[in-house]
C-alpha cells in the first residue's frame, strides 16, 4: 500500500526518470549498433582481425561497470557530462553481443548459397546486401536485443555518477533503506527490459527468413 502510494505521489518523476533511462539505454545501443554491426561485417572480410576484435570486446565486458565509469571520467568532452560518460560506457558494453552476433550470423550463411551468388555474377556488395545481411538478420537482431536489455539493466548504475535514469530511485532507496523507493526505480526498469525484449523478439521472428 505504501509502495503504491509512493508511486502515485511521484508519478511525474518516475515518468521523467523513465524517459531519461530510455534515452540512456536506447541511444547507447544505437551507437553500439552503428559501430558493432559494421565492425562485425568487416571482420568477416578480414579474418585475421576477427579474433582480436572479438577478444577486445570481450575484455571490455569483463571490466566492472562502476570501474569503467571511473576510467572514462578523465576523458576530454566525454568526462565533462555524466550522461555522455554513461552513454559511452553503455555503448562499449553493448558492443560485444553486436559484433559477435553480426559475425556469427554472416558466417552461418551456407557457403553453397554464396558460391551460387558469385557464380551468377553478383558483386561483393550485392552478395552482402542481398544475401548475407538478409540471411543474418535474425541473428543480428538477437544481438541487438541482448545489447538493449543489457543496457537497460546497466543504465541503472549510471545514476551512481549522476547520469540520471531510474537508478536514481534505487540508489536513493538504498541510502534511505526504503523498499518503496527502490521499487519505484526497479519495477519500471524491469518493465522496460521486458518490453524491449518482447518487441525485439517479435521483430526477430517477423524478419527472420525461413
Amino acid at each position: 500500500m505504501n509502495t503504491l502510494h509512493f508511486f502515485l505521489e511521484n508519478r511525474a518523476q518516475i515518468g521523467e526518470l523513465t524517459l531519461e533511462h530510455i534515452w540512456l539505454a536506447g541511444f547507447s545501443t544505437l551507437i553500439a549498433v552503428m559501430i558493432g554491426v559494421p565492425l562485425g561485417i568487416l571482420i568477416t572480410r578480414w579474418p585475421a582481425a576477427a579474433k582480436s576484435v572479438i577478444g577486445s570486446a570481450n575484455i571490455i565486458q569483463t571490466i566492472p561497470s562502476l570501474a569503467l565509469f571511473g576510467f572514462l571520467l578523465p576523458a576530454p568532452w566525454i568526462g565533462a557530462r555524466a550522461d555522455r560518460l554513461a552513454i559511452l560506457a553503455l555503448a562499449l558494453y553493448a558492443l560485444l553481443p553486436l559484433i559477435r552476433n553480426t559475425y556469427a550470423g554472416i558466417k552461418s550463411v551456407d557457403p553453397a548459397v554464396l558460391e551460387a551468388g558469385r557464380g551468377m555474377g553478383m558483386t561483393d556488395r550485392q552478395i552482402l546486401w542481398q544475401i548475407e545481411l538478409p540471411l543474418a538478420t535474425g541473428v543480428i537482431l538477437a544481438g541487438i536485443r541482448i545489447a538493449l536489455v543489457l543496457s537497460i539493466g546497466l543504465a541503472t548504475i549510471a545514476a551512481a555518477i549522476g547520469a540520471g535514469g531510474l537508478g536514481e530511485f534505487i540508489f536513493r532507496g538504498l541510502a534511505m533503506v526504503d523498499n518503496s523507493v527502490i521499487l519505484a526505480g526497479a519495477i519500471p526498469a524491469a518493465l522496460l527490459a521486458l518490453i524491449a525484449d518482447f518487441c525485439l523478439g517479435w521483430l526477430e521472428r517477423k524478419l527472420s527468413p525461413g
Binding site: D110, A112, V113, A116, G210
Partner: peptide, 11 residues
C-alpha cells in the same frame, strides 16, 4: 550456372 538445390536463395 546451375548446381544442386542448395544453391537457391532461401529468402
Amino acid at each position: 550456372y546451375a548446381i544442386q538445390e542448395v544453391g537457391l536463395f532461401p529468402h
